[in-house]
């Protein structure tokens, strides 16, 4: 029995999270097919066809799929589900929204946020905000899986699968898109960035975040924040890294004025190199940092900008 990976995309580009999730989905058994559902998204299907290990791409191009609303997406996928033992998707806000609906309509279980595929039916996933790892086995004929992309390497883009256009299903018609407000930024997206610079309550005000942005621009980094900084209104919620925000695992994570609450560590402790700048030497963040600097961030951060300049950044 085959595996169907539902692609995450913005109708123009396949997301990096899908490229990484393809690596996980390829280990889930049978042929790997990718579903690209959206509006005007044929280019995305061509990109998906290049993913290594993909046997076939299904393209459902229809206005009702443009924003990946849960009701039409689940109606579409349920109609395709017959040939698949596993239906998977990245654990993005889209995937987290529609996948449990698909699972319940198919009367099957969902395994959320998979971080390792042990075999086609056995998975590892974090529970309690990553403070414990659960190994779970499914013996049902069908299952739904959401994949935590940061736990997997990107699939190679050397494939050449065929693209089959498929028809749209009936829209249940109970939901419609009204508007969206996306944070505009020239910086990379948090979950895909190679370097992340995050600020916490120690930043004292949103007006001080441009300090971090200057560092971020030198490093080609995304800017994040702790929940404390979001709760204090310094920055919008989509900056939030942590148990209740985004999970990131960049090459370099720089935590500035972040104490390191359990809930924040859950979102960044898989980063390759962690730097902490905090004036409180007792801050728990230093227990996970590879490099700690005990200093007042308001002197250390401008100095860091200068020092980075000196090494040509």
């Amino acid at each position: 029995m085959n595996t169907l990976l539902i692609a995450e995309h913005n109708n123009q580009n396949l997301s990096e999270s899908t490229v990484k999730s393809a690596t996980a989905a390829a280990q889930m058994g049978g042929e790997l097919h990718v579903l690209v559902a959206g509006a005007g998204c044929a280019g995305v299907a061509d990109e998906a066809a290049k993913l290594d290990g993909v046997a076939k791409v299904l393209l459902a191009d229809d206005a009702q799929y443009e924003k990946h609303l849960a009701e039409p997406m689940s109606a579409l996928v349920v109609g395709l589900a017959d040939g698949y033992a596993t239906i998977a998707t990245p654990a993005s806000t889209n995937g987290k929204n529609f996948m449990p609906r698909i699972a319940a309509l198919l009367d099957c279980s969902q395994i959320s946020d998979v971080t390792a595929v042990l075999d086609a039916n056995t998975f590892e996933r974090p529970i309690y905000a990553g403070n414990a790892i659960q190994t779970v086995r499914v013996s049902e004929a069908k299952k739904a899986v959401t994949i935590r992309p940061t736990a997997f390497a990107a699939a190679a883009l050397t494939g050449s699968a065929g693209v089959d256009a498929i028809g749209a299903s009936d829209n249940p018609g109970v939901s419609e898109f009204v508007s969206e407000e996306l944070t505009k930024s020239d910086r990379p997206e948090l979950t895909g960035a190679k370097v992340v610079v995050s600020g916490g309550r120690g930043m004292q005000s949103g007006e001080n975040f441009p300090m971090l942005e200057k560092i971020a621009d030198k490093l080609g980094a995304a800017v994040g924040a702790s929940r404390a900084a979001v709760d204090a209104g310094f920055v919008p919620n989509d900056y939030q890294v942590g148990q209740t925000g985004k999970v990131v695992a960049p090459e370099l994570y720089i935590a500035v004025g972040i104490s390191g609450a359990i809930q924040h560590l859950a979102g960044m402790k898989d980063s390759k190199v962690i730097v902490a700048i905090n004036k409180d030497e007792e801050a728990p963040i230093f227990q996970v940092a590879d490099y700690g600097l005990v200093a007042d961030l308001f002197t250390a951060v401008p100095e860091l900008e200068e020092e980075l300049g000196k090494v040509g950044l």
Binding site: N94, F177, E180
Partner: peptide
């Protein structure tokens, strides 16, 4: 949502 806010009816 990832990247911002979305309003649906």
């Amino acid at each position: 949502i990832d990247g911002g806010l979305q309003t649906i009816k």
